[in-house]
Nucleic acid binder design. Structure first.
Length: 270
DNA sequence: AAGTCCTGCAACCGCTGTTGG
DNA sequence: CCCAACAGCGGTTGCAGGACT
């Protein structure tokens, strides 16, 4: 007797979310908080499975998300953390407030991997790419050592940034080392699972409009959040912050979104 | 202008870990 | 201890839009 599917997939909608669905999900979460994702679609009136709702919320609708490309500092952090943690994207994401594991994973696969390869660095091992067989065996050895080190240093152990990985050195040589130093102040000496990393007043708006070119396919992705919210035409609540100003910040940082009450959050429910 | 290729992101799938009966 | 239910994670895919021919 195998495990039952997480949801009854018959009649459930798949594919891109519509603004209407987003609206329903946001309203439901804001009203009821995050609880029992399996029940969310039914209660929210959505023809989606709970898994899909959770993903949509955590990867896109969460108000504390930053949008746009990763900054140079964030990119370096990702590289450094990846050297330490491997493909544990959620752990890496926990060090980058406002970023999701999916976003980081995508960015790694599409940007950073190429960048590192271009620099002659193996994105897997974070070591210079070897050319001959001997170097390859050395590489494998160092890879094994890295994995052993990771095993002996589980994610919950105190995390310290390894500052001298070739990858990070290479990045630093390209400029921006000072910024990395600043960021290291933030991440040095806390446990991987210890969040928050920043104070509420430091939270960035989830919408910093990116001036960089965006090739997003989704109707609303990579837009500024203000535009995104306008697209949703949400009548039930309003964002209290002026998201049109990049320097504004929203006053919340709470991992436990379930604690969000009807009126206790950064929005005002009308 | 039309067709093709490439890129990047959102979302899905399947597996693992955790929890509670 | 076992098993089912559930949440979460990481790998992968599908597709829209831009770049190129």
């Amino acid at each position: 007797m195998g495990r039952q599917p997480c949801c009854d997939k018959v009649g459930l909608k798949k594919g891109p979310w519509t603004a209407e669905e987003d609206k329903k999900l946001i309203n439901f979460i804001l009203t009821n908080g995050q609880c029992c994702w399996r029940a969310v679609p039914k209660l929210a009136g959505l023809l989606r499975c709970g898994k899909s709702c959770r993903l949509r919320w955590t990867n896109y609708l969460r108000p504390d998300l930053k949008r746009g490309l990763l900054s140079e500092i964030e990119e370096k952090m990702v590289i450094d953390l990846h050297a330490q943690l491997g493909n544990r994207w959620s752990k890496i994401a926990s060090h980058l407030p406002g970023r999701t594991d999916n976003e980081i994973k995508n960015h790694w696969n599409t940007h950073i991997k190429k960048k590192l390869k271009k620099m002659g660095i193996d994105p897997l091992t974070h070591k210079p790419i070897a050319n001959d067989v001997n170097d390859q065996s050395q590489q494998e050895q160092s890879q094994n050592q890295l994995q052993e080190a990771q095993k002996s240093c589980p994610a919950n152990d105190t995390f310290e940034v390894e500052q001298n990985t070739p990858a990070v050195q290479a990045i630093e040589e390209e400029g921006g080392g000072d910024e990395l130093d600043k960021m290291e102040l933030l991440i040095d000496g806390f446990c991987t699972d210890e969040v928050p990393l920043i104070e509420p007043h430091e939270i960035l708006v989830p919408c910093a409009p990116s001036s960089s070119s965006s090739t997003s396919s989704s109707s609303s992705s990579s837009n500024s959040a203000s535009n995104f919210l306008e697209d949703l035409h949400l009548p039930e609540f309003e964002w209290l912050c002026d998201y049109s100003n990049n320097n504004d910040s929203i006053g919340l940082w709470d991992d436990d979104f379930s604690s969000w009450g009807q009126e206790s959050w950064a929005y005002g429910i009308l």
